[in-house]
């Protein structure tokens, strides 16, 4: 079972590779869009600016291959900017189009806390994951979050956060000084995490292990 990591020159790919190895998984790194159709799962990392990542994916002609892959129902995981890019658009440095698999926009985290006091941007650090309000105890069953204990913290580094239009697409939430962060999103076989599972210690490795066990979604 091969996991393909999209190597488009963006993102801390080495760390993702090492984390997969640690979880006993096999991976290939590929900068060739044609490889995606042979893969059982795909990870799209991403660090830096949304527009830059989107342009780079476009220039390397990855977008049609990624769209075909997600339509196949096989497990797909976006990390950090690779998660944001699953949404419709971003307001980072002007408007940029995303891949549009999840309706919603990516916007700057407010530069004040929920009480109106200035706080630091980027948000760098560990924040606890929780199930979105109104979701039951078993909401994470069968997802990449299934082995994450409630309130466990993971590592974030970002200045922007996704706002999925459909609340059903929210898989996990987190808060930065009272500001809501979309920590994980899900839509059928597509999952995205704003945090870095490859940098979140044993909890992060559990998320990656669970992803490696994901089965194709019935299309």
């Amino acid at each position: 079972m091969t996991t393909l990591i999209v190597d488009y020159g963006r993102g801390n790919i080495q760390s993702v590779c090492r984390a997969i190895e640690q979880c006993g998984g096999e991976f290939i790194l590929s900068s060739n869009p044609a490889d995606l159709e042979k893969a059982d799962r795909v990870i799209l990392p991403g660090v830096g600016a949304f527009g830059d990542c989107a342009n780079q994916l476009d220039q390397m002609d990855f977008i049609p291959a990624i769209t075909d892959f997600v339509q196949s129902g096989k497990p797909f995981l976006g990390i950090c900017v690779g998660m944001q890019i699953l949404h419709t658009a971003s307001e980072e440095f002007g408007d940029h189009q995303g891949l549009g698999y999840l309706p919603g926009k990516v916007r700057a985290i407010p530069n004040t806390d929920s009480g109106g006091k200035p706080h630091k941007i980027p948000h760098i650090g560990w924040a606890s994951l929780e199930k979105p309000k109104g979701k039951g105890e078993n909401y994470w069953d069968g997802t990449i979050m299934e082995n994450v204990p409630d309130k466990a913290a993971v590592y974030f580094v970002h200045s922007f956060t996704a706002h999925p239009d459909n609340p059903e697409h929210r898989l996990a939430d987190a808060y930065y000084n009272g500001r809501l962060i979309a920590a994980a999103v899900i839509h059928n076989n597509i999952t995205g995490v704003q945090f870095h599972p490859e940098k979140s210690g044993t909890i992060g490795l559990r998320v990656i292990s669970s992803f490696l066990k994901q089965e194709p979604h019935n299309v």
Binding site: R18, Q22, Y155, H196, K199, S200
Partner: peptide, 8 residues
Amino acid sequence: TTQNIFIP
């Protein structure tokens, strides 16, 4: 070091 350490 980074072979087996999974924090920033």
